[in-house]
């Protein structure tokens, strides 16, 4: 299958390894990955912070970059949720009928990585090997907006050598929340501290998630604490081979 990669602005700029890993996994499974160079950002940061007007050009840009693909994959549950839930709404509000049509056509084809693998491609074993103890943080948007369920866990359980330990209170938010972490830094830090404690209680070497944003947040705190736990995107683990 020819699959377009929406890498997201955060992964593109700060976590390119996650993006490269998506390419490697899909390559290995025999699919053709294309990267529309015009893409930038889904507009979630602005939309969620209340700058609706500034997110509209990004919705338009997304539609222009990704029109015509059968499947679009993104290594972010949060951005996938933004596109699927709110792009149609914003396009509708803009009054631009052409844009609304384009968006309506594109959004059902946008898949978060683990959903693409398990639901669209029907794969749980991607041939990965990662002999480490790993715990998985299900991001809020993956759980409660996209409802990807245990798809990431099924993928991780199929990775050779991987020792998966359950994260206590896994479904509780890590406290990132985009600009929430800046506007309410104390509450955000308190939530993050509890998440870090839960991660440490598992004894895992690696914290994994399907969103770079949560990993940036929890990883930033773990690094400050010199906790010795590495953060890795799900794609990076799935790309690992012996």
């Amino acid at each position: 299958m020819r699959i377009a990669l929406f890498v997201t602005c955060l992964t593109d700029t700060l976590y390119p390894e996650a993006g490269k890993s998506v390419v490697r996994v899909l390559d290995r499974l025999g699919h053709q990955v294309v990267f529309p160079m015009e893409q930038t950002c889904c507009g979630q940061l602005h939309f969620n912070t209340g700058y609706r007007a500034q997110s509209l050009p990004l919705v338009r840009g997304f539609a222009e970059a990704f029109g015509g693909f059968d499947a679009i994959v993104t290594p972010s549950a949060s951005c996938a949720a933004m596109v699927r839930e709110y792009h149609p709404q914003l396009a509708e509000e803009s009054g631009d009928r052409g844009l609304a049509r384009a968006v309506a056509e594109i959004t059902p084809r946008v898949h978060e990585l683990s959903m693409l693998l398990t639901d669209v491609l029907g794969v749980t074993d991607v041939g990965a090997s990662f002999p480490h103890r790993v715990t998985y943080h299900p991001s809020c948007h993956s759980l409660r907006m996209l409802r990807i369920g245990d798809a990431p866990l099924r993928l991780l359980r199929s990775v050779r050598g991987l020792d998966l330990s359950e994260l206590p209170a896994a479904d509780v938010c890590c406290g990132f929340g985009g600009t929430f972490s800046v506007k309410n830094p104390g509450v955000s830090a308190a939530m993050c501290a509890d998440k870090c404690a839960a991660v440490l209680s598992t004894g895992a070497d690696v914290l994994c998630a399907a969103d770079s944003s949560c990993l940036m947040h929890i990883g930033g705190a773990l690094a400050r604490q010199r906790a010795g736990v590495t953060t890795m995107h799900l794609a990076e683990i799935l790309a690992s081979t012996r």
């Binding site: 976590y15 390894e17 940036m216 690094a223 953060t231 995107h233 990076e236 690992s240």
Partner: peptide, 8 residues
Amino acid sequence: RQTGSGTA
């Protein structure tokens, strides 16, 4: 790199 977290 295999493990690409920027904060590592």
